[in-house]
């Protein structure tokens, strides 16, 4: 495991900026993720539930937050990851994922950082709010 001495409270992860989500992205994610709920891919079903259009899977933005984490540190260092779905991501919405180290503490004999995570649309709407814990190395 790599020691990560430069990571401390306030460290910000390089934001992950995504392109606008189109219908092809949603169709591919439905197939790849196994979430076949038609409300994300079939406008007729969305309308039958009183919506104007389909909307993106919350787990797609969660997967983007996962990418934010695993391009920052190897996945072996990821200990936990939780998200809360705050607002839907409409078709053509453009998420940006951000993370910031909120706390560093020793747990189970290793240094761990708590990362506050957010996915946000171009208009500022927060769609996901989350937290992850990562191991930084053996306790000092």
């Amino acid at each position: 495991m790599s020691a990560s001495p430069s990571i401390d409270v306030g460290t910000e992860l390089a934001p992950l900026e995504l392109p606008p989500l189109n219908r092809t992205t949603l169709a591919l994610f439905a197939g790849a993720s196994g979430d076949h709920n038609p409300i994300h891919i079939d406008i007729d079903v969305a309308r039958s539930a009183g919506l104007d259009d389909v909307f993106a899977h919350g787990m797609l933005s969660t997967a983007y937050l996962g990418r934010l984490l695993t391009r920052w540190l190897p996945q072996q260092q990821l200990r936990s990851f939780q998200v809360r779905f705050v607002a839907i991501t409409p078709v053509h919405g453009q998420p940006t994922c951000t993370g910031r180290v909120a706390e560093v503490a020793e747990v189970d004999g290793e240094r761990r950082a708590k990362i506050e995570l957010e996915a946000r649309l171009a208009d500022g709407t927060v769609t996901l709010s989350g937290v992850a814990t990562v191991a930084l190395g053996a306790a000092r």
Binding site: P38, I39, R79, S80, F81, Q82, V83, F85
Partner: peptide
Amino acid sequence: DMRQILHGEEGFTYHRV
């Protein structure tokens, strides 16, 4: 009915990859 469902939260704890 599936159309009634919203995803509220999802969480993972990892013991190894």
